[in-house]
């Protein structure tokens, strides 16, 4: 439904977006995740035809946005970061105006305005001036505006920014409800939003795509950097020595020890299931296995790992030193 190919955008010498490519299937909700200033808004603005790219192309429903912008824009609904509202208009006036310029037929205009106001829960303020509404209402008026011409594709730039927790949940439900009939791209720097609403995630950092996939998939793919936490009753150095040599284990680190109990963090290789082996080795050696759990990375960890790559590598290099083993010995 949306095809983005090798998109690049330069502002003078600054590269805002560099060689970004991804696709969104019909009816899908794609989350666009990245820290502030990563290029999310720029990419979305290019998709909507507000900005033109330095290089690359965007197709919406098979229509090239640069070649036939009007046809593409008819199929697009867009909610920018700040809802584009005219503060001196009432909600109804505003939605009617947007409907007119978005090409809603005259006869259907009134019906559409009522429909979207109800859908976005702004019907109770329809005669109020937008300038006098709260941020939450304005945001929902913005969403109603994006929906007025019933577009196939919705581009939402941080749709839940500035809403209170209850409104955030309502907006998320609303967006989820749009999947199926609409194809949605939403950007956010808030992580739970992605795992809660999106079927697929594109993580963008410094203008480039650093990861792409379903939220679970992303977690799974990066599980390799993850680890197993194991609490054992027994002599720490022996345990570390024995576990260290198991296949699939990269490094064993002591996290804490109290009395005879030690908690170890076992770093594993990518996609290696070592928990059964760990348990067997510990039990067969006659130590007491107190607890064994996989400490899977949260989306938050992945996000940080991906978007602060340099920092992440530094930390990893530091951790790779044989400090774990030595430390464990010196403690005991």
């Amino acid at each position: 439904m949306i095809e983005v190919e090798n998109l690049t955008k330069r502002y003078g010498p600054t590269l805002a977006v560099s060689d970004v490519s991804f696709q969104v299937q019909k009816g899908e909700i794609l989350g666009f995740l990245g820290p502030n200033g990563a290029g999310k808004t720029t990419t979305m603005r290019i998709i909507t035809g507000f900005l033109s790219p330095t290089a690359g192309r965007v197709r919406v429903a098979g229509i090239d946005v640069a070649e036939s912008p009007i046809e593409a824009k008819k199929r697009l609904g867009y909610l920018p970061e700040n809802p584009p509202v005219y503060t001196d208009m009432t909600v109804n006036e505003y939605l009617a105006f947007v409907g007119r310029i978005k090409g809603v037929p005259r006869g259907e205009l009134k019906k559409r305005v009522t429909e979207v106001s109800e859908k976005c829960a702004v019907a109770d303020v329809q005669h109020r001036q937008i300038g006098k509404l709260s941020k939450g209402y304005r945001q929902r008026v913005g969403l109603a505006q994006a929906l007025i011409h019933n577009p196939e594709v919705l581009i939402l730039d941080e749709p839940t920014a500035g809403l209170d927790p209850k409104q955030i949940i309502e907006t998320r439900e609303l967006i989820k409800g749009l999947a199926g009939q609409h194809t949605v791209i939403l950007s956010t720097h808030i992580l739970p939003e992605v795992s809660k609403t999106c079927q697929r995630v594109v993580v963008i950092s410094k203008g480039t795509v650093v990861a792409m996939g379903a939220p679970d998939e992303l977690t799974a793919r990066l599980q390799g950097y993850g680890s197993v936490l194991v609490t054992v009753e027994g002599p720490a150095p022996d345990i570390i020595g024995k576990l260290q040599v198991l296949p699939g284990v990269n490094l064993v680190e002591q996290v804490e020890s109290s009395g005879t109990r030690v908690t170890l963090e076992v770093h594993t290789e990518k996609n290696q299931e070592v928990r059964a082996d760990l348990a067997r080795t510990i039990v067969e050696s006659g130590w007491g296995l107190i607890e064994l759990k996989s400490s899977g990375m949260s989306l938050e960890d992945i996000f940080l790992k991906l978007t602060t790559k340099d920092l992440g590598e530094e930390v990893a290099a530091h951790e790779a030193l044989p400090a774990g083993g030595i430390e464990a010995e010196s403690v005991n």
Partner: peptide, 12 residues
């Protein structure tokens, strides 16, 4: 006010 984004992304 940012409404320029609305105008320039409308099919006009």
């Amino acid at each position: 006010s940012g409404t320029i984004e609305l105008l320039l992304t409308s099919p006009v």
